[in-house]
């Protein structure tokens, strides 16, 4: 702004220095808009790569033979197999999540109690499988668990079993494989959360008369719940859409939504039917989140942090 501009403004304002409130407010709005502008490219990308495909999927699910139709949804209501497939998908996801919690939480706890150095070393052990191809890990389980696999060879060699155990191509094998793949997704967020819990809380609990076990259950565990919940939800949601491992280890006995979607889209090119299943899965997942959100208020659990 030129010097004369300032002078004329000053002249206009003479005697009323507080008349600039609207301009100052406008400046603040502009500044906020600029900040928003910084995130605009990212929002656009997210819109294009995440929102549009979902909207497209939603739209496709209402199209049959080129025109609007509820046929795909009607079929899901009519055919009992769909309900069973959805049920078994949610069931196995829940079971895997529970097992992952039972195995992963103690490990994350152990890691959180070690020195940073020792913990990083052990974390690498957690991460190495994480970085290995999903297919490789899944086939590795096949090699270990099958009828003439390593584990059955040992068991029979040691005389512990007479006939090979059925460890894979069934529900058991699917659970083992899925849990193994999912464990890092539980351990990492949980570990990160446990690390941030101030050790003074445990000291305080001890000084107030809590034995180590009671201090853990009354103080440490409740404080770790938000992290554990984050990990568990991540695992659960990932399980809902899991395809490769259950397809390879389930022996065709575990039929999940993802497989049915693959069948519809990949084998029959029925995008509408596949999309409708995707939409139902999405809606059901959101419904579960909503229900969980009502049951446990995360804010309450988090408290001050």
């Amino acid at each position: 702004m030129s010097a004369t501009g300032i002078e004329s403004l000053a002249a206009r304002r003479a005697g009323r220095p507080d008349a600039n409130a609207p301009e100052l407010a406008a400046d603040e709005r502009r500044e906020r808009l600029h900040l928003f502008g910084l995130s605009l490219p990212a929002l656009l990308v997210i819109g294009i790569v995440a929102f549009l495909p979902t909207a497209w999927l939603f739209w496709l699910s209402f199209i049959d033979e080129g025109s609007f139709s509820l046929a795909h949804y009607e079929r899901m209501v009519r055919e009992a197999s769909y309900l069973r497939i959805f049920w078994s998908t949610f069931e196995i996801s829940a079971v895997v999540t529970v097992i992952a919690i039972l195995l992963g939480y103690p490990l994350a706890y152990l890691l959180s109690q070690l020195s940073e150095r020792a913990a990083s070393l052990l974390l690498i052990l957690v991460l190495v499988p994480f970085w290995t191809s999903l297919l490789v890990r899944t086939y590795a389980w096949l090699v270990l668990l099958q009828r003439r696999g390593v584990i059955n060879d040992w068991l029979q060699g040691l005389g512990l079993v007479d006939a090979p155990l059925r460890l894979v191509h069934n529900y058991t094998g699917t659970l083992i494989g899925m849990t193994h793949i999912m464990l890092p997704f539980l351990i990492l967020p949980t570990y990160a959360a446990l690390r941030t819990i101030d050790r003074d809380y445990l000291k305080a609990a001890a000084s107030l008369g809590a034995s180590p076990l009671r201090a853990f259950w009354t103080v440490f565990f409740p404080l770790s719940l938000p992290g554990l919940m984050a990990g568990a939800l991540l695992v659960f949601v990932l399980c809902l859409g899991f395809y490769v491992t259950p397809a390879l280890l389930g022996g065709g006995r575990v039929l999940l939504v993802s497989m049915k979607i693959q069948q519809n889209a990949g084998m029959y090119f029925e995008w509408g039917a596949a999309s409708a299943m995707g939409v139902i899965l999405l809606v059901a997942t959101l419904g579960i989140f909503w229900g969980l959100g009502r049951l446990v208020s995360l804010d309450r659990v988090m408290g001050e942090r």
Partner: peptide
Amino acid sequence: IDVWWNSGAQSAQLLRDGE
């Protein structure tokens, strides 16, 4: 039926490994 296979490669693997 112990396994319901879903790819040609899988059926070959099942017979080859004696699964």
